[in-house]
Design a protein around this nucleic acid. Sequence first.
DNA 1: TATGAATGAGGGTTCATTCAT
DNA 2: GATGAATGAACCCTCATTCAT
Lengths: 191, 191, 191, 191
Amino acid sequence: MPRSKDQQKTKAIFDATLSIILREGFSGLRMSEVARKAGLATGTVYIYFENKTELINQLYLVIKRRSTTRIFDESIVGQPFLVSLEKIWHNYLEYNLLKPEEGAFVEQYYRSPFLRKEVIEETDRLLLPIFDLLERGKKERLVSSAPTELLVSQLIGSINELVKWHLNGRIQLDKTMKDQAFQMAWNSIKR
Amino acid sequence: MPRSKDQQKTKAIFDATLSIILREGFSGLRMSEVARKAGLATGTVYIYFENKTELINQLYLVIKRRSTTRIFDESIVGQPFLVSLEKIWHNYLEYNLLKPEEGAFVEQYYRSPFLRKEVIEETDRLLLPIFDLLERGKKERLVSSAPTELLVSQLIGSINELVKWHLNGRIQLDKTMKDQAFQMAWNSIKR
Amino acid sequence: MPRSKDQQKTKAIFDATLSIILREGFSGLRMSEVARKAGLATGTVYIYFENKTELINQLYLVIKRRSTTRIFDESIVGQPFLVSLEKIWHNYLEYNLLKPEEGAFVEQYYRSPFLRKEVIEETDRLLLPIFDLLERGKKERLVSSAPTELLVSQLIGSINELVKWHLNGRIQLDKTMKDQAFQMAWNSIKR
Amino acid sequence: MPRSKDQQKTKAIFDATLSIILREGFSGLRMSEVARKAGLATGTVYIYFENKTELINQLYLVIKRRSTTRIFDESIVGQPFLVSLEKIWHNYLEYNLLKPEEGAFVEQYYRSPFLRKEVIEETDRLLLPIFDLLERGKKERLVSSAPTELLVSQLIGSINELVKWHLNGRIQLDKTMKDQAFQMAWNSIKR
DNA sequence: TATGAATGAGGGTTCATTCAT
DNA sequence: GATGAATGAACCCTCATTCAT
């Protein structure tokens, strides 16, 4: 049995799901529509995913793993603290700009009846590298001694909002703007 | 004369709606459940709101108007810039801590199929006072010359995330933590 | 208690009912709409009529009685047969052209779940004068010896259809056309 | 391969619809009842018809097309005028006696909120053969010179009423009665 | 494995009728 | 009597899931 075929269909289903959620939101997500957009029959989706909840949770996991991998890549290893931080900060921003559908999905997942705690616990752990990095920054006396959770939340929160305002059209994010935003972020956490 | 339309019932419906959305999310919002929780018959809800969309949009408007009024109150008038800023910052934080159900509602409204553009346009205008305040801060050479939209988005984004982490239990928001958070916010925008 | 007030309201309710049925059909008939159009509160309609069924049946009776009175008036008494027949034929036609809403109502009443057999039995008896007239025509050797029911049905059926086609716009009913139609009717039953 | 959409089911739905309307009238037509009577789940009806309106309009079209085909068949071609006319007249009568449910449906459709103008326009065109036939009768100097619309309406109206009176029990339609009725019809239009 | 018709519980909305004022 | 807000059963339609092919 061609495992490759499976992979393709799984991807088609994920892509279809994301594009529907970006356009119509979670409540516009119908399994038949996912199938149609993925070029499959409705029943086929149920061969790949036990049910809608499973599909959504799997997709959440995939997105979180993929995005973290891309964002942290090798940015951290063996680089000066601030270089790493800036790289990660930009990676995070760019990733969210590039994949607005994933952002929309993740945000809605949190408030959805599909959310599964174990999944959240697993994906929370994906943030460890940024916690580690900031701890290092503290040790190097570069970063404020405020609790790391606070530092991380503020970094993330401000980027998330930035992306929203950009997608809204309230902010036009060019190079300068991004640099200013990073400067603000850095100012907020630096010692 | 029959009983006349009742302000209290409107409130009961709004409260029921919010509490359901906090617990179950937008997709768990059933009109029959709203009615039950509000102590009314299903049909009665339709006397007060033409349909589900209308109920949700009206509620959004009410929440936004009420919250902005509370947050901005007289904090701005005739006070030194930084005093105003800190007051508003704390008002915003406290309001969101006090009414997590409203935050949950507002966040989901944005991605919902119920969203109506005119409503967003109206509520966006409610943010004008904070824009004005920051412009004043710029004129007084206290605040960075970065675009005001950027400054506002960063202030808001970081508070929103802070509240989320608090409600998640990832952050324990005591007085010290709040002060540190404000200090970070101020550091990010000050000149 | 002023009985006149009652009469007026009853009439207002009947008129409202008819005008709604003409525009929207039986299935568009809502008690609240009847009340609104009659300038009354919903509950008031229930003071005058026990329920919807009662309202409709009363209205049917009133219409049938009124129309028969108008159609037969004194046309029959002491006039030559053909003069009576033509008068009645024209009365019937004109009445239906004048009150299309009553025609629409009566037709739909027959197929409705509101129909009550006793009412039909009573109103059927209203047709007796035309039966009598045709019997007289037979005795005077002016009219075909076919069963009177057949004769009556054919006279009525052709007028009803004529009115429908006129209201549809498929036929433009002017004086000539009406005379031609009567001539056809007469030709169909004359000996 | 799944079961594929089924002609038989369409028919079952149509039959169920007609039988309900005959017994209960248009206002007694509930989609769930249609499904039950057709031996299907409610949702299944919606696979075959987009909604109630669509079901009713499709049914109207099918009935009108089928009945006209049966009524006109080859009765008209290459036969003397009066032979054709009598055949069609009888066909029309017999069809309506045979399918009272279709008559009931058609009559109510006209007054219903489901009526769609294009459908009426299309089905009106189905009457063209009888118009043509009568024109031919006029050319052959057999038929009165009255407007063809008038002639057609009178023929149709009298048969419709005849059928109603028969179904009511007011007329017992045997062979003799039918012949008399045709004679009346012919007398009404002949030159 | 793939298909898509079939299922039926469930949700939004309507509207005849009631009843507190 | 008059009012119109309140009630809740009932109806239309959707959509996650199943299953015959």
